[in-house]
Design a protein around this nucleic acid. Structure first.
Lengths: 207, 207
DNA sequence: CTTGCTCCCGACCGATCGGTCGGGTACCGT
DNA sequence: ACGGTACCCGACCGATCGGTCGGGAGCAAG
């Protein structure tokens, strides 16, 4: 992290700003100022604003995939591997507070088919690939009878939602919880919740 | 809905566009075109773009509150009232597909303290008021022993996350589920899930 | 007919947007 | 000493931004 090159510094600044204000809300001038460069110098490292934005998203997605990959190479029953996968996924979101919001914003922009500014469904496709592994683990667990009455797609939707929202909820979530979202305590709790959600058979209707 | 006045038409268009592209991503020109007006005519109904945006958010928040209010006036034990409250909250999000994204974007913008373009923590304060009722119901349920081992703040965070994300996940979520997010089936399932989440004692660690 | 109000419009404003251009400087291998 | 390349800069470009202004059409009250 010490003495990062200029390109990485631009990506760092872009990541923070895009997560805060979204693609349209950030000007190249502001990015350049924060990096300590002239605006025109940015275009030496990235051909356009869109390219910079895509590079930021790409780095974020790669970081998640990198975190999650080891959990899949493990041997062992699908149930334990899924636990490790979920831990890794949460760690990936907790690592940088910007990640969750960038993912959500990426999903939003992917759906904005009117404006052809971004490659079609870029983030969504990448996310599908990353999360398809988790889905396969859940399906394997269901077949093995480890989870009661679980529908993998709905389970995925809930797991993603509860997790991504938590780290994207910002000051609103912190006010609710009364502690920082990234505190070791809150992160550990989130991990426990996801596992309990799986193992307790969420979708067994309360009698 | 028949023959709405011009002001409401502007709000309708603004709601759709702001949900799609966010505040910074929408131009007054585009809004005016979709309504069928000249750009300058918009400023006859709203003093500025910010005022239009706040009016859109305000209408969305009011709609949620309106939906949720009857569930609170009910008598009966807190457990049943909470069930009705959650149903109403989900109905409010399902009513307009734009709602969830506008809420998330509002939370994001509230945290962007750098840009003083919006009143401080406007959406977050309004949401806190709306959701504080649910929190009180959960606390009452915990005291009555209806829910095992539940921490109200964490429960709230998970309930909000799973619900809001579901309706904000757009084409990504639909691809995962294989059906429209707003289909009666998916909405009903979401209601069942939230209730099961409460009654099954999510936070009892799996043994 | 006049006055005034509501609603809408095209023309226009200064500011800012993403992006280009020519030139400057420092370090490179030769 | 040389040309080349990587990096950075200020000046500038056309387009678009939010917003203003003067005025026109329609309608109601006097």
């Amino acid at each position: 992290m010490a003495d990062p090159n200029t390109r990485d510094k631009i990506l760092d600044v872009g990541e923070v700003l895009f997560a805060r204000r979204g693609f349209a809300g950030v000007g190249m001038r502001e990015v350049a100022d924060r990096v300590g460069l002239g605006k025109s110098s940015l275009f030496h490292h990235f051909r356009s604003k869109v390219q910079l934005y895509l590079a930021v998203l790409e780095r974020v997605l790669a970081r998640i995939q990198e975190r999650v990959a080891p959990a899949l190479k493990d041997t062992g029953d699908p149930c334990e591997r899924l636990d490790r996968y979920l831990d890794a996924f949460i760690d990936a979101l907790a690592e940088h507070p910007t990640t969750a919001r960038l993912l959500l914003r990426g999903i939003f922009e992917d759906d904005d088919f009117d404006a052809g500014t971004f490659p079609e469904h870029h983030v969504e496709h990448r996310l599908e690939v990353i999360l398809s592994d988790a889905r396969r683990l859940i399906e394997a667990g269901v077949e093995a009878g480890a989870f009661r009455d679980v529908s993998p797609p709905h389970m995925m939707q809930t797991l993603i939602g509860a997790t991504v929202y938590h780290f994207a909820s910002g000051e609103f979530g912190e006010g609710l919880l009364g502690r920082p979202l990234l505190s070791a305590e809150a992160v550990a709790r989130r991990k426990d919740e996801l596992k309990a959600l799986l193992h307790n058979g969420l979708w067994v209707k309360a009698q």
